[in-house]
Structures are given as structure tokens and as C-alpha cells.
Amino acid sequence: MAFGIGAGIFFGHLPFVKVSGIPGTTFRIWPGYIFKRVTQRLGIKIHTEKFDSEAKAMEALDTALSQNIPVGMITGVYYLDYLPEAFRFHFNAHNLVIYGKENDRYLVSDPVLEATATIGPEALVRARFARGMPEPKGKMYYIKEVPGSIDLAKGIKDGIKQTCFFMSSPPVPWFGVNAIHLLAKKIEQYPKKLTPRQCTLYLGNIIRMQEEIGTGGGGFRFLYAAFLQEAAQHTGNNELGTLSERYTAIGDQWRHFAYSAARICKARNSDLVSYTELSKLLHDIGDKEKQFFKDLKKVSW
């Protein structure tokens, strides 16, 4: 529900923003945005703070914890030593919640994990002050006040409207449904423009962004479909239920795309035909998403 109200679903492909020499692809809105929008839409008051000094950042955390306030914060994944090595790279926009302190170790609720974990103060300081792009600067936030009644239906409507705008309207090719076609075009050119090794690494990165990062699978498409289903039940609007089913099918297509891409990587296959076919799969997804968000925009409330 929070993902939908916070307009979390997105697509972006930035060929010129490279991480380790590989162009960036994203399936969700930029970090921090969902939390900000959800709390704004539902009238929840939050306290946000950034720090210049590491000591002050940890002090503020301890003060909040001593008042039994769970604290959300932005961290660099690389320093979260409770995660398996496979996931630890320099990504500095990972949100987690610290909910207590015991024997000088912090108690963590991390969205990646099924269970809670603990982290030592040294590692947490490093994670909170990770450098690079972006820099969290010890940013932390907590809930100050929750209104007596919450108007979910309005939040749902506003979240959906904003999502439709973000997906359909950007006038630049790198964001929204148009970016899916942009990526499809790029993939078709991979075997012509890149070395076979680059080809597989580029494709592999798309798969990782789609499946490894985040929740739900299929580049957050299933999570958004689940939101639409929940929204349909909450508002009694059957149109949303039908649209949820349609978006599930689009999510399945994304899974099929990832599976096909992985097969090409595995075969180390850089022949033109397979990349052309992959590109076609993606163009088809782009068309479907375009129509989907057009129809979602037209839902009568």
C-alpha cells in the first residue's frame, strides 16, 4: 500500500550515468521519495535530520532510541556487515530502521532480511557516513505525529495519479515508459557496439536491477499489482482489480525478459538474432506499459 501511495513504481535508463562502466537502469523512483510522499499524503508528521559530525549523528540516534522511538536512516550497503557479501557493494541509499540498542550493539530491521539483525557502532557510523554518490550524511528520520484518522482512499488516488504522470509524461527519453523503448533500442545495438564481455555485463546489470534489488520480483511490477489489488478492495473500485491483473501479466513478461537475457549471458552468445529478439520482447513490454498507464489514468473515481 505504501509503495503505491508513495508512487514507487518507475522506469529509467540512463546510458550516460555509468556505475563501474555499466549504464544505469532503475525500476523504482529515487530513494527517499516513497517515504516522503506517503507521510505527506497521509498527514503523518516526520522529523528529518542530517549531520556534519559523526559523533552528533550517533548521539541524536541514541537520544531518540532512549525515548523508544524507532529511527529510519539512509546508509551505505557496503558497511552493513550483517548482509551476505554477495549484496555488499557501494550503494549509498539503503533505508533501514534501528529500533533499539542492547549491549552496545544496535538492533536493526532491514527490509532485505526476514529477521532482525544487529550492528556494531563502528560499522553503523561508516554506513551512515558512506561517501560517493549519493552521500547520506548521517540522515535519519522518525515519526513525530500520526493523525487520528487517515484517508487512505485519497492517498491511493493521488499516488496513482502521480505514478501515471511520472510514467507517461516525462518529455525526455530516459524516464518513464519511453525509457523502456530506449533500452530496447540500446540492447539491439549491444553486439554491434560492445565487446562480448561488455554485452553480458550490461545485460546482467539489467537483470540485477530488476530482480536482485528490492522487493517482489519483476522490477517491482508484482508489488505494484499487489497494491492495485489492495486498492481495489479498499475503495471498492473494480477497475483497479482488472488493472492489477493486467499489471501482473506485464510483470510476468518482465520475468520472461530477464530469463531470456540470462540465457544469452550464459551462452555468452553475442549473435545479432538473440539480441534483436530480446529487444523485441522489451519493445512489447514498453507498448503494454504505455497503454496500461494510459488506462490507469482514465480510471473513474
Binding site: A86, L201, G204, I207, E212, A226, Y259, A262, C265, K266
Partner: peptide
């Protein structure tokens, strides 16, 4: 047709992408 969340040990396609990136 109703959604539920379920845990997964991983997926072949994703595993391949992860190991491939690490090997590089």
C-alpha cells in the same frame, strides 16, 4: 488471483547475473 508474499531462495536468472558480475 489474490496476492500473497512468499520467500524465495533465489532465481536461476538472477543468480547468474550476480555471480557473473562478481566474477568480472
Amino acid at each position: 488471483g489474490s496476492y500473497t508474499s512468499v520467500n524465495s531462495e533465489g532465481w536461476e536468472a538472477e543468480n547468474l547475473a550476480t555471480t557473473q558480475a562478481w566474477e568480472a
